[in-house]
């Protein structure tokens, strides 16, 4: 039996579109309006949406990069980038090998992961006390 050559390996990314990019941007627009009106925060899991090759990159290009970029190192690196639309953040979580384990669009003033967590503050205080004593 001849092994078939996989189809579409050389497909041009521009030709494969789910049509989900523009609706997603509209969803972000509505969420941003809700944040402004009611303070309602929204998180969109990009991994739950069917996207063709290149579409995730197109979303990222449309959102662009804004004034704030946060690097987080907890269970591997994470990057939290405010897009060129203030209040819209692109959050990418990686493991220690740099593999993406989650990608989200967060519509909020600041992603909650950036703020120090009470449990970590408490542990840090214990450590600082030990260092000084």
């Amino acid at each position: 039996m001849n092994t078939p050559t996989p189809a579409g390996c050389n497909a041009e990314p521009g030709n494969v579109a789910t049509g989900n990019v523009i609706p997603l941007l509209h969803e972000i627009r509505h969420a941003l309006q809700a944040l402004l009106d009611d303070g309602q925060e929204t998180v969109i899991d990009l991994r739950s949406i069917p996207l063709g090759p290149g579409e995730e990159a197109r979303i990222e290009a449309q959102l662009g990069r804004g004034e704030v970029q946060v690097q987080l190192t907890a269970l591997g690196p994470s990057e939290l980038v405010e897009t060129r639309f203030p209040g819209v953040w692109l959050v990418t979580h990686c493991n220690n090998d740099g593999e993406v384990i989650g990608k989200f669009v967060e519509i909020c003033a600041i992603p909650s992961l950036v703020t120090a967590q009470t449990a970590d503050i408490r542990a840090g205080l214990v450590e600082l006390n030990a260092q000084l004593n």
Binding site: V43, L72, A74, H93, I101, G102, F104, L113, Q117, D120
Partner: peptide, 25 residues
Amino acid sequence: GVSRRGFLKFCAATASMMALPPSMV
């Protein structure tokens, strides 16, 4: 040695993995 931040990140990835909405984190 996983911090609370790391734990919350773990929970966000777990929710995504379980196909649950991020609001359930």
